[in-house]
C-alpha cells in the first residue's frame, strides 16, 4: 500500500524549481541534520509517515539518524530516488563516464566484488552491461538498505533517457532487480508521462508507480496538461504527484482541488521547509483522500 502523503526532500538538499538561490539558502538552513530530523519527526507526529529520499551525500547523514530512531527505522516509509543525478553530471565533467563507472564499482562491497571476480573480473563485467547496471543500483541503494524501503524510483533523467532511446528492456531490468533484491515497489520518475506509458506497453510492467509533476498551471508538465490528463484516463498506473503547487504559484486549496479531480492520483509529495503551514496543508489534502 502506497502512502497517501509523502514528505519531499528537495528543500533539504538545495533543490528549488523557482529560484536556485533560494535552494542554496535552504540548503544552508538545513546545514545541520537535526533541522531535517525535526521536520521529519514533526510530520511523523502529524501521521505523515513516509518520505522521498534522494541519494544525495547529505541524505546519507539523514539515513544514519533515521536508523538511530526506533520509531522512524521501523515505521517511516522511505521512497528512494536513484541515482542523485547532479552528482554524476558533475563527475562526468570532472573525470568522464568511464571513470565514474570504474570508481563506483571499485567501491561496491567485498562480497559483490567477489561475485564479480567469479564471473570473470572487471574486464568481463564491463561487457555485461546489465549486471553492471544492477551493481550500480546496489551501490546507490546500499546506505539506505536497512531502512523501511517501500519503493525505489529510477531518476527521471535515466527513465526519460531510456524512453528517448526506446529501451523498454532497461525499465524491465530495473523493475525486476528492485522487486527481487529489495522486495520494494519498482517505480519511475518522469517528465514525459504520456509517452512513457506508451513505452510500458512494450514491457511486462503492469500498473506502474509513477512520480511526475502535475498542477493546474501545467508547469513542468509535458507535452501538455491536456495530454497528461488524457493519459491518466487511458492507462493503468498509480500516480505519485509532485510539483502540485507549481513551485509555489498555486495556493494549496486551489491546487489540491484540481489535483484530486484527476483519476489515478494515489499520493502526493509535499515539500516542507518549516512547520508553519504544514498542518493546514495536510488537512487540505486530507479533505480529498
Amino acid at each position: 500500500m502506497i502512502d497517501r502523503i509523502l514528505l519531499g526532500h528537495n528543500q533539504f538538499f538545495g533543490v528549488n524549481h523557482l529560484d536556485a538561490k533560494v535552494g542554496d539558502q535552504k540548503a544552508a538552513q538545513f546545514g545541520q541534520v537535526q533541522k531535517i530530523m525535526d521536520i521529519i519527526n514533526f510530520c511523523y507526529d502529524q501521521d505523515v509517515k513516509a518520505m522521498m529520499m534522494s541519494t544525495h551525500e547529505r541524505a546519507l547523514l539523514v539515513a544514519e539518524e533515521i536508523q538511530k530512531s526506533d520509531r522512524l527505522r521501523e515505521n517511516l516509509g522511505i521512497y528512494l530516488l536513484v541515482p542523485y543525478i547532479a552528482k554524476y553530471i558533475k563527475q562526468a565533467n570532472e573525470k568522464g563516464i568511464v571513470n565514474i563507472v570504474r570508481d563506483s564499482l571499485k567501491e561496491t562491497s567485498f562480497a559483490g566484488k567477489l561475485g564479480m571476480f567469479m564471473r570473470g573480473g572487471m574486464g568481463l563485467l564491463t561487457k555485461d552491461v546489465k549486471t553492471m547496471i544492477k551493481l550500480l543500483v546496489d551501490f546507490e541503494v546500499a546506505p539506505f538498505s536497512k531502512l523501511n524501503l517501500k519503493a525505489i524510483f529510477l531518476h527521471d533523467a535515466l527513465t526519460d533517457l531510456a524512453l528517448g532511446w526506446d529501451m523498454p528492456d532497461v525499465l524491465e531490468l530495473f523493475a525486476d532487480h528492485v522487486e527481487k533484491k529489495y522486495n520494494a515497489i519498482p517505480a519511475f520518475c518522469t517528465k514525459n508521462l504520456p509517452r512513457l506509458m506508451r513505452l510500458f506497453e512494450k514491457t511486462h510492467i503492469k500498473n506502474p508507480l509513477i512520480m511526475a509533476s502535475i498542477n493546474k498551471l501545467g508547469y513542468q508538465v509535458n507535452p501538455s496538461r491536456e495530454e497528461f490528463e488524457d493519459a491518466l484516463k487511458k492507462y493503468e498506473l498509480q500516480l505519485l504527484a509532485m510539483s502540485t503547487l507549481a513551485a509555489g504559484y498555486l495556493k494549496p486549496k486551489e491546487a489540491y482541488e484540481y489535483l484530486f479531480s484527476l483519476p489515478r492520483v494515489d499520493s502526493v509529495v509535499v515539500g516542507l521547509s518549516s512547520t508553519n503551514h504544514a498542518v493546514e496543508t495536510f488537512s487540505e489534502i486530507r479533505k480529498h483522500i
Binding site: 524549481h17 523557482l18 529560484d19 533523467a157 526519460d160 533517457l161 524512453l163 528517448g164 517528465k191 514525459n192 509517452r195 498551471l217 501545467g218 508547469y219 513542468q220 508538465v221 509535458n222 507535452p223 501538455s224 496538461r225 507549481a246 513551485a247 504559484y249
Partner: peptide, 17 residues
C-alpha cells in the same frame, strides 16, 4: 517573469526543455 510564467511543454524532455 519566473519559469512558471514562461513554461510551455515539449514533445520530449530529457535533461531540460
Amino acid at each position: 517573469w519566473y519559469n512558471p510564467d514562461l513554461f510551455h511543454g515539449v514533445e520530449i524532455d530529457v535533461g531540460g526543455p
